[in-house]
């Protein structure tokens, strides 16, 4: 019986990267947000190491303002696959006085996560953190390496990056440095959605159209919830919405949508004229918001 394996080039590249991480580092970890990109990473890691188990734990930095659907999904996935999950809470960093809660109209715990993340890296001595960032997401991300070296302070030195030639990855680092690894760097948002569809990967329900209490500000759809600052004149409506990216409630805007199935979602993404991060409140802060956050150790 002839049974030919024809590779999908982007999937093969990601698996190659994940195997390099497992081979080149002592304590890798997969940064898991419960979003579609990190869920895709988990599937790729399954494929990379099958029939062995994924040889690194997942780390979730919980802002405490996550959608309950995401947390429920996370716990279910971890249980099903028998994975090790580490959770570190932004609330603890606030309690320890390391960071201060933002106040006012755009208050969010998004930037505070960086401190919690860097503390967790130090606590567990992780030398490689695998993330689901993609180069098509954002201008500063477009210049990111697959193996991105960070110093002891988690900082990204964008002008001094190691050149990456062909697919030869150099993960050698000094004590105290760590590497952020981005196995799906070369995937687009549409690639991820088409993969989720082909592979029949389960994702949290908030990616599909559902009824939700929302309000409108700056042309974006915000979740009406006790964690999200809202002024009294900002009226709440019940609308059919879905989320295109899943961060925490304070930094992720919804989109009005009737796409209740994966097919409908994929079709919507394909025809969309708004970028994915267009619905990220955190990026709207300034033209260089992402780059500034990355320099100080953001994901």
């Amino acid at each position: 019986m002839s049974n030919l394996f024809i590779p999908n080039p982007k999937e093969a590249e990601s698996i190659h990267i994940l195997r390099e991480v497992a081979a080149q580092f002592e304590r890798p970890v997969l940064l898991f947000s419960g979003g579609k990109d990190s869920i895709t990473l988990v599937r790729l890691a399954q494929k990379a190491f099958y029939p062995a188990r994924i040889p690194f734990p997942l780390l979730h930095i919980d802002t405490g303002h996550n959608f309950p659907e995401t947390i429920e999904f996370r716990d279910q996935l971890v249980a099903e696959l028998g994975l090790e999950l580490i959770v570190r809470n932004v609330q603890d960093s606030i309690n320890q006085g390391k960071v201060t809660e933002e106040r006012g109209r755009y208050a969010s715990r998004n930037t505070l996560q960086t401190t919690t993340l860097l503390d967790a890296i130090e606590e567990f001595k992780f030398d490689a953190c695998i993330g689901g960032a993609r180069r098509d997401e954002e201008k500063a991300r477009a210049k990111e390496r697959v193996f991105s070296v960070r110093d002891d302070f988690g900082q990204w030195d964008e002008k001094n990056q190691r050149p990456e030639l062909f697919d030869m990855l150099n993960g050698r680092i000094h004590q105290g440095q760590n590497v952020r690894v981005f196995p799906i760097s070369n995937w687009t948002e549409l690639d991820v959605w088409e993969y989720i569809k082909t592979e029949d990967i389960a994702i949290p329900s908030i990616y599909f159209a559902h009824k939700r209490e929302v309000f409108f500000r700056d042309g974006m759809v915000w979740t009406a919830n006790e964690h999200v600052y809202r002024e009294s004149h900002e009226e709440v409506f019940e609308k059919m919405v879905r989320f295109r990216t899943v961060g925490d409630m304070t930094c992720t805007a919804a989109v009005l949508s009737d796409a209740e199935t994966l097919d409908a979602v994929v079709a919507e993404i394909r025809d969309s004229t708004i970028s994915e991060r267009g619905a990220r409140i955190d990026d709207k802060r300034s033209e260089a918001a992402m780059e500034s956050r990355k320099k100080v150790g953001y994901f």
Partner: peptide
């Protein structure tokens, strides 16, 4: 395409950037 702050200030490109686009038949990087 000019992504980094320094590049936008100086109007030049200082590092390799990856850009993605599709047509009906082809994925381009």
């Amino acid at each position: 395409t000019d992504g980094l702050i320094a590049e936008r200030e100086q109007g030049i490109t200082i590092d390799v950037a990856h850009i993605y686009f599709n047509t009906a038949k082809t994925n381009f990087v």
